[in-house]
Design a protein around this nucleic acid. Structure first.
Lengths: 219, 219
DNA sequence: CGATAGATTGAGAGTTTTCAACCGATGTGG
DNA sequence: CCACATCGGTTGAAAACTCTCAATCTATCG
């Protein structure tokens, strides 16, 4: 996260703290539980005071994909709220979390009361759309190994403290657990990563990304 | 497109016509030419008066993906403009088009001058993010045949009059031209589609979608 | 220490791609 | 009007990548 973005998040948070928080209800959600489910009406959205959640979609055959990951000071549920749609995926707590249910009733309500928050959310949607489309491009043209490296790097930097599993890394980038394991073992044998028990260490990020770039060229 | 959305687009267009169009410059763009290229700075965005454009990204190895398709009365370039980022993909004219280059200088400029347009764009971003994530889910858990059917149906309804090629259908859903051909031939042999020269006819949309749903279950 | 979830490894299977050849329609210049 | 180039489409056979399934191992925790 860039510095300016960090500052913007803090501003949003300050903003929320001053004006809105007391009108919100506080939700405590336990690891593994859902904040909301795919298909439900999005008549509100949320702000994560402290925690880690993931937006997860499931294919009819059971395949799961981790669409987005939300940490402290992130909004969640805003996409469906803004689009005036049902939730298109489910929000699951990856660890015990504290979430505010925000008091806005409609998008124009949000525009009237807190245009800065609306602007912030608009920009977040624009960035998330880019990231989603970059992932589409990766699914289309790149090898699993490349996608796994991307997922590893992204998830680690999004939540350094969380122990991401092979399954979750695979669900983020469209790979099976076994494929993630094999790829990581290969990367370890190339000294591009190291393993400490179940956790993964990246000794030299640039070397890892250079290796990925080489993969992308030949794929 | 729902009726309410259609009305909203018209309103936006009326709005543009009255206040903004005369401050815009008109761009004529020929089929195959680029409105903008990946990596360029997005210091403005555009409105399509008449035409058809596609947002296309390319992998380092040359694989192309058709990220979005824009017809009459669509904005284009707004994502990068709003996010304050470089264009993450290139915009190519699929047929000769007339495009307005809009006069807004920044997102807050847009908020001040035309909050309705900002709201419209925000909602469009939210819907496009859903669609992109639904495609990620399809890449992850569904067969090519399923994705090809989705692409065929979506592209046809987005621009009925345009003759979509096998290559374009494949680039929209992550399949090679030959795979699209094979899949379409198979669908034809099942009487789920018909071919008239190069164009594809869907005699019974519901039957086709039912077939797709069955595919998704067993995949 | 045993139980359990997560990780690893191997062998075989399956889907989609790759490569190459060929067809057919469309359009252009001589 | 024909010859020919070109673009899009079709088909087949072989190759490649990733998955599936099954067995085994090992962190981690009560």
């Amino acid at each position: 996260m860039t510095n300016s973005l960090k500052i913007k998040c803090l501003n949003i948070y300050e903003n929320l703290a001053k004006e809105i928080i007391d009108k919100s209800s506080i939700i405590n959600i336990k690891v593994g539980d859902l904040l909301y489910s795919k298909g439900e009406t999005a008549d509100c959205f949320y702000f994560i005071k402290d925690g880690l959640l993931a937006l997860i979609d499931t294919s009819p055959n059971g395949a799961e994909i981790l669409l987005r990951v939300f940490g402290n000071n992130f909004f969640i549920g805003h996409r469906s709220f803004i689009a005036n749609e049902e939730f298109h995926a489910s929000a699951e707590a990856l660890k015990d979390s504290i979430v505010y249910k925000l008091p806005f009733k409609s998008t124009s309500d949000l525009l009237d009361q807190s245009p800065n928050i609306l602007l912030h959310i608009t920009q977040m949607l624009a960035r998330d759309l880019r990231m989603s489309e970059e992932r589409l491009n990766a699914f289309n043209g790149k090898r699993v190994a490349s996608r796994i490296i991307d997922a590893l790097v992204f998830l680690k930097q999004r939540q350094e403290s969380y122990q991401w599993t092979r399954k979750e890394i695979g669900e983020f980038c469209g790979a099976k657990t076994e494929t993630v394991t094999r790829t990581l073992s290969n990367l370890e044998s190339l000294s591009l990563i190291a393993k400490d028990g179940r956790s993964i260490i990246i000794p030299d990020l640039q070397k890892l990304l250079d290796y990925k770039d080489a993969l992308d060229l030949e794929a």
